[in-house]
């Protein structure tokens, strides 16, 4: 009634939060399976069990008593990422890389074993998860594919692919900016770059206000730029969607220089900003990609 009153047309089939929650999240994702996506350790176990590419797990630490022993095992690697299994917004993630003398460094300084223990202890005791306890995940540190550096050479960029009933329906590339503190999230001043699903090329860049054809910190045009491993990314998304008992997913993928596309995270409530980035509503994408099925009956 309200819409008739104000004559608001929605030709692009944009979905609001209410419709997303009722028709996508609640209908397709059973709450008891949320854990599989929310807990990165569970996500990785499921991925690894089905041999789906994801950063190699070096260690999972659940008890403070195991920290020392497990960290000793990890010290053989050149670069590791330490993450809370239930963290949010990138809090508590530390990247440690060995320098020429074999010391782990982060943020431009050497990290002693004691400092590492302390950080893992705070993760395990739930400091970053708002829960009483958490697990700590130590995994191989991804080396971003040179493709990303051509657009912007800093932070951790990733692809977000939305799947519904196993079919990728929309995707975007999220890039950090000089203002986003290394993070690629749209609401943390990162930018989103639209993706043409069929062609596997980048389209417009959206910074939350304006559309352009280049990254805000780099004048080189990205519109029409071909995405490496696009077919693999799609296949990886489909396979991932298949093994999770959740039918509506936001899958985060990075491209490792050596290993190719890797699954980083799976979200049960992917944001709606992707519609703005692609200048296309989710409903329209669903209609175009799932014409034959009667999903939304």
């Amino acid at each position: 009634m309200f819409y008739k009153l104000f004559q608001i047309q929605n030709p692009k089939g944009v979905m609001g939060i209410n419709r997303r929650n009722l028709e996508l999240v609640y209908r397709h994702n059973h709450r008891k399976h949320y854990r599989l996506a929310d807990d990165k350790v569970l996500t990785k176990q499921l991925l690894e069990a089905h041999k789906i590419a994801t950063a190699t797990t070096y260690a999972v630490i659940r008890k403070t008593g195991n920290i020392k022993r497990k960290w000793e095992q990890c010290k053989q690697y050149d670069a590791v990422a330490i993450k809370p299994a239930n963290g949010c917004g990138g809090d508590g993630i530390k990247i440690l890389k060995k320098d020429s003398e074999g010391n782990f460094r982060s943020g431009g300084r050497v990290w002693t074993d004691t400092e590492v223990y302390k950080h893992i202890t705070s993760i395990v005791s739930g400091f970053f998860s708002m829960n009483s306890l958490d697990s700590c995940l130590i995994e191989k540190c991804i080396v971003p594919h040179p493709f990303f550096a051509e657009i912007y050479n800093a932070g951790v960029p990733d692809f977000r692919v939305i799947t519904l009933k196993g079919t990728p329906i929309m995707a975007m590339l999220r890039m950090p900016t000089s203002e986003s503190d290394g993070k690629a999230n749209l609401h943390q001043k990162g930018v989103g770059i639209g993706i043409h699903m069929g062609k596997g090329v980048l389209t417009q860049v959206y910074d939350g206000k304006r559309y352009t054809h280049h990254h805000p910190d780099n004048p080189n045009p990205v519109y029409g730029k071909e995405i490496p491993y696009w077919e693999e990314i799609l296949t990886l998304s489909e396979k991932t969607a298949e093994i999770f008992p959740l039918d509506y997913l936001g899958i985060d993928i990075v491209i490792d220089e050596a290993e190719g596309p890797q699954i980083m995270e799976v979200n049960v409530r992917p944001g709606l900003g992707i519609q703005l980035v692609n200048r296309c509503g989710l409903q329209q994408s669903i209609n175009e990609n799932l014409i034959t099925s009667n999903l939304l009956s």
Partner: peptide, 10 residues
């Protein structure tokens, strides 16, 4: 979502 919607206010 203003950029994607069509407003025809009377």
């Amino acid at each position: 979502f203003k950029p994607l919607l069509d407003f025809k206010t009377i």
